[in-house]
């Protein structure tokens, strides 16, 4: 079962849910692999302290123009929707950071003057934390192209029956790439208008991708029921609730696991796992 942990809003506790769920799955005797797909700000390793193999660069192909072969016909610049190539009277220039690696320019070039080079987007490392398989991707500072790196992170998983994808915040291309192919989306929210507003975006994204979803309410406060009311209206199950306490906030801030710090939270995660096992059986 591939479970994406997502949220819309940042900082609602996606990584907290992803790592505590991974630990709960592993302790139930199941084989699990956690992918930190938040390559802009990867944090899961802070909680799980994994042993990682070498950081392998991930690159995307970009064009290189051989100006001796180029006759400046301009077809490469014309096909490029991203203005990554400037065909000038005496020279053809490539702007690698505008390139989307669509391959149009080297396919269209009639002189075979364009070859491919690698542009490094970031690094991916694979390893394990105890029995939990672990992969993380790290985007290079200043790099703006994120989806291919997330794609590579997900592609490192080999055979683990349970895969947990810690997704980036937002609802645009990086979040889409993380969610794609998931069997279930666990959407983490908090009982605030910001949390709820962005949860609604995440629900729309999951439903747009045909991924069934359920909710985890983090930092729950007794008597504040705005998440319940939203979920009832949208016909969404609330699968777990993690209360807000200063003690839990302190544990999380130091990279500690909530399931080790608090028996009630551990029970909530065990119940969440049972729900997910039930969903898988029904699917």
């Amino acid at each position: 079962m591939r479970i994406a942990v997502a949220s819309g809003k940042g900082g609602t506790g996606k990584t907290t849910v992803a790592v505590n769920l991974a630990v709960t799955v592993a302790r139930s005797g199941r084989q699990v692999h956690l992918c930190d797909c938040d390559v802009e700000e990867p944090n899961a390793a802070i909680y799980l302290d994994p042993q990682l193999g070498p950081a392998v660069p991930v690159s995307t192909p970009i064009p290189v123009v051989d100006n001796d072969l180029c006759n400046h016909c301009g077809q490469c610049a014309a096909i490029c929707e991203f203005n990554a190539i400037a065909c000038l009277p005496r020279q053809t220039l490539v702007f690698p950071d505008l390139c989307h690696s669509c391959s149009g320019c080297w396919l269209v070039c009639p002189e075979q003057a364009i070859t491919q080079a690698d542009r490094v987007l970031g690094e991916v490392s694979v390893g394990s934390a105890g029995s939990i398989g672990f992969t993380q991707g790290v985007l290079r500072i200043g790099e703006t192209v994120v989806p291919p790196l997330i794609h590579t992170v997900k592609a490192t998983v080999r055979g683990a029956p349970w895969v947990i994808l810690d997704a980036p915040p937002g609802t645009t291309c990086p979040a889409v790439e993380a969610l794609r192919g998931a069997d279930f989306a666990l959407l983490v929210t908090e009982p605030t208008p910001f949390g709820l507003h962005d949860l609604d975006l995440a629900v729309k994204l999951a439903r747009g991708l045909d991924i069934p979803c359920g909710i985890v309410e983090n930092r729950a406060i007794p008597g504040r029921d705005i998440v319940d009311r939203y979920c009832a209206e949208m016909d969404l199950p609330v699968l777990a609730r993690i209360p807000f306490t200063r003690d839990l906030a302190a544990v999380g801030s130091e990279g500690g696991l909530l399931v080790d710090a608090d028996a009630d939270v551990a029970a909530a995660f065990t119940q969440l796992l049972d729900e997910l096992v039930g969903l898988e059986a029904r699917a």
Binding site: G10, G11, E40, E41, L139, I141, G142, E143, T144, V145, V146, P168, P169, G170, P174
Partner: peptide
Amino acid sequence: PPGIGCPVT
């Protein structure tokens, strides 16, 4: 926005 990617730049 959060992160360090395209919209942040």
